Amino acid sequence: MDFVLVHGTTQSPAGWDRVAKLLAAAGHRTIAVDLLTPRELPVEGYAQHARDQYDGERPVVVAHSGAGVLLPAIAEALDARALVWVAAYIPDFAGGRSLRDEARSVLEPDWIGVDPTADPAKASEFLFHDCDPETERLALDSLRLFDPAVLAAHPAGAAPEIPSTVIVPTRDRTLRPDWLRRAARERLGVTAIEIDAGHCPQMSRPAEICGILTGSRR
């Protein structure tokens, strides 16, 4: 099976390295796309940018954090067989509100206004607090800002018809776990899978994420 891994707003594709290695060892093909471009694009532009980096058919598309805004469009562009939201914002498909409109409901209050890429201590506090020292070092090396205006301002379109899995880290300090549980149920019609992790379980719990992706843990 093919997996397309989509980084969030504060990490490069290297944030997926541990998960990608485990998936490859299990016989799966993976590509961690890079959304960073010389100029900002509309949502459809980022979807095409992801499409240009993938040469397979019908992957599972996995998105982290703010990349949830882009996940439906990327999934459509790649003709995805399934979507996985890892601590990822789920758009307001019915109401059409943007992430900016919902920020105070979605994000933990202490996270709003923080730029972890400019302050390693803040990154450790909010993103990597559940990592062991070696993992934290690797995680800090993966820091990179990707925050085009479209992520905050894009109004949600129609809900995807592709099957979704939502992963909720219960110790997330950036995106509110209670909000994500509710959004999974109300916006996608699924019950979230909860894991004991912070906002970046692809770093701190890669084997558990891999198990969920491959169906060995449901």
Score class of each variant (00 low, 15 high):
182 R>E: 15
185 R>C: 03
68 G>R: 13
188 L>D: 11
123 A>L: 02
40 E>F: 13
72 P>W: 10
167 I>C: 04
16 W>Q: 09
118 A>C: 05
78 L>T: 06
186 E>V: 13
22 L>C: 10
94 A>H: 06
14 A>F: 09
27 G>P: 07
133 P>S: 12
67 A>F: 00
7 H>Q: 15
106 V>A: 07
157 G>R: 09
211 G>Q: 06
19 V>W: 08
200 C>G: 01
205 R>N: 03
87 A>K: 01
71 L>W: 02
66 G>Q: 10
7 H>E: 12
194 E>P: 08
193 I>G: 06
47 A>N: 09
3 F>C: 12
29 R>F: 00
133 P>D: 12
182 R>Y: 03
198 G>L: 02
184 A>R: 00
143 L>S: 09
138 L>P: 02
185 R>S: 15
216 S>H: 14
114 V>A: 12
79 D>M: 02
18 R>A: 15
27 G>A: 14
27 G>E: 13
166 V>P: 09
51 R>S: 05
14 A>P: 05
10 T>W: 04
112 I>N: 11
214 T>D: 06
130 D>S: 08
207 A>V: 03
16 W>H: 10
120 P>H: 11
67 A>M: 00
208 E>N: 03
98 S>G: 11
187 R>W: 11
66 G>N: 13
72 P>E: 09
138 L>A: 14
169 P>I: 08
80 A>Q: 04
58 R>Q: 14
121 A>T: 14
9 T>K: 05
216 S>V: 09
217 R>T: 12
106 V>F: 10
21 K>T: 13
144 R>W: 05
90 I>W: 05
10 T>S: 13
186 E>C: 07
143 L>A: 06
87 A>S: 15
24 A>E: 15
51 R>N: 06
197 A>V: 01
6 V>N: 05
17 D>W: 03
101 D>F: 11
49 H>V: 01
66 G>T: 12
158 A>H: 09
161 E>T: 12
60 V>L: 06
206 P>M: 08
16 W>E: 04
57 E>S: 14
117 T>M: 01
108 E>I: 06
20 A>I: 00
56 G>I: 00
68 G>A: 12
188 L>G: 11
146 F>H: 15
79 D>N: 14
99 L>A: 15
4 V>E: 00
23 L>D: 09
12 S>L: 09
113 G>Q: 08
